[in-house]
Each structure stands twice: as C-alpha cells, then as structure tokens.
C-alpha cells in the first residue's frame, strides 16, 4: 500500500469486522523527534494468543481468519523497513490494539496520504461505531469525535452526500506540510 492512511483504513475495517462499537485512532507525528506513530484501539471480539501470533504471517491465515490476513503483514514489513515496528495486543472478548511506528524521515516511509478520505470512507458504512480520532502533529493537536459530529447533525447519517462532504472537510488537518 502506497499510503499509511490506507493501512489505517485497513485496520479500521478489521475492527469493524471484529464487531467493534468503539474505536480510538491515535496518531502522533513529530519531525523534531523523528517519529511517526499510530495506534488503533478497538473493543471488538479480540484474538487469542495463537491467532495473535499468526496475525502478521500472511501464509498462516486461512479464509476464515482472513480478516487479519495480508494487511498487517504488509504493515509490519513496512514499519520494520522504516526503523520502526508493529505491536499487536489483543484480548478475546475485550478488543485489539495495533501500534505501528516509523522513523519520520526514513526515505522508505510511505506518506500519510489522504487520511481524511480514509476515515470518512470508513465512517460511511459504519453508522453505529463511535470513532474518536486524536492527531498530534508537530506540537498541534487535532481531535474528532464521530458521535459528537452526528449529534450536531441531529440524526442525519454520513450517507447523506452533503453531510459526507462536510465530514471530509472537518477531518482535514490544517498543518499540511
């Protein structure tokens, strides 16, 4: 995948398939400390030890366990090639936490890409999931809460095309660089 935001979308979709109702997406980018990290924490059905060990192995997954097949393996390879790594913590019945880190300035680090698009696209098909998104970027902090946004819209759904356009705008972070 060419963008980190596509990996983030992939993990969010895993969380959805795992039946999560609450998801926290936390991202920190710091040029000064030369680090880019993200965490995705969900309250889905989680994985046992055996499954967790297989989660990053693309060849050990079967069709039934496909929900954590190729995606995490690719992310792990990318993170490790960029001076970082991938950490998976999961507890059956409680949820899963995925943490990835990268050296910010590493030449092979994929760009973040269209993160607002990834989050927006995820939310379109998942009305009932409460997503909180916290992004710290070079000292600035950005916070988004899907429940609060929908409450403001007074019962409309993200499916409403104009509300969706507004959602994408709201997800844009100002400090682009």
């Amino acid at each position: 995948m060419e963008e980190l935001s596509l990996h983030i979308l992939d993990i969010l979709e895993n969380a959805r398939e795992a039946g999560a109702t609450k998801i926290l997406l936390w991202i920190r980018e710091s040029r000064q400390e030369d680090v880019l990290k993200f965490k995705i924490i969900d309250n889905g059905r989680g994985m046992g030890k055996e499954m967790l060990q297989k989660a990053c192995d693309p060849f050990a997954t079967t069709r039934r366990t496909r929900k954590v097949g190729l995606g995490l393996a690719m992310l792990k390879a990318t993170a490790e090639a960029c001076g970082g790594g991938l950490r998976l913590v999961s507890c059956p019945g409680k949820g899963t936490r995925v943490e990835a880190s990268f050296q910010y300035s590493h030449v092979d680090r994929p760009p973040m890409g269209n993160l607002a698009g990834s989050i927006g696209v995820f939310l379109v098909g998942t009305q009932s999931i409460h997503l909180r998104y916290i992004h710290r970027k070079n000292g600035k902090r950005f916070v988004f809460d899907s429940k609060a946004f929908l409450k403001q819209a007074g019962g409309l759904s993200f499916q409403e095309p104009r509300l969706f356009a507004l959602l994408l705008n709201s997800l844009e972070i100002e400090d682009k660089d």
Partner: peptide
C-alpha cells in the same frame, strides 16, 4: 473494502461515489 479492495483503490471509489451522489443530489 477488504485489504484486497483497499489496495486496489476502493477508498477512491467510495470517495468518487459520494462526490457524484452529492453533485447529482441523489439522497
């Protein structure tokens, strides 16, 4: 929107669909 779909460009497909629905006012 599995990993295969995302890697092949499903995100841009959804974004385009939503954009087109907005432009055409298909609610």
């Amino acid at each position: 929107m599995g990993t295969c779909g995302i890697a092949a460009g499903a995100r841009e497909v959804v974004l385009t669909i939503m954009d087109e629905l907005a432009k055409r006012k298909l609610n």
